[in-house]
Amino acid sequence: MFSQTQIGALLHEEHLQTIGALQRLEEFLAKQGSKRQPDAAQPEVRKLLEAMLALAAEVDRHYGFEEEHLFTLLSNAGEVGMVGLLTDEHAVIKPLAGELAGQARTALQTGFSAETWRVFHGQGMELCEREIFHIQKEEMGLLAAISMLVEPDEDARLAELYRNLPKH
């Protein structure tokens, strides 16, 4: 929505990819239900679990960049309220994604039991809801703030920095 800046466009592109992944995860979880564990050896399930690992890594990278480079800049420009709100949400979502990634890794090796699937299902649904809501706010708040407050030379520097961040 606010991709007039280079860094805004990069973050927006990642948001689109993340939402796509989350919607696939949510659809699978809803279809499977919490009571019947899937066979983790099935290619479809393996693909989903691998996508979960990639998602958690992407969350880590994306949030890390925002917290380290963007939030400081925006806080200094007076956007303390928004930065505080987004940081608080990061503090909830990041460990949740990390925990799910751990469960996905284990499931890829040993599969799901009824109990591990129930936990994965509940937390997976929670991640989908929290992360989509968070992206909604970033799309409409953070990207707007970037387009208003980040100067072109700073924008180019941040975009370069972000492009060069190693992907997991």
Binding site: F2, V80, G81, G84, A144
Partner: peptide, 14 residues
């Protein structure tokens, strides 16, 4: 567009 909204949610504006 939503930055004031977000800030507002923490009590600064509305």
């Amino acid at each position: 567009m939503f930055r004031d909204f977000l800030a507002g949610a923490t009590g600064r504006l509305l």
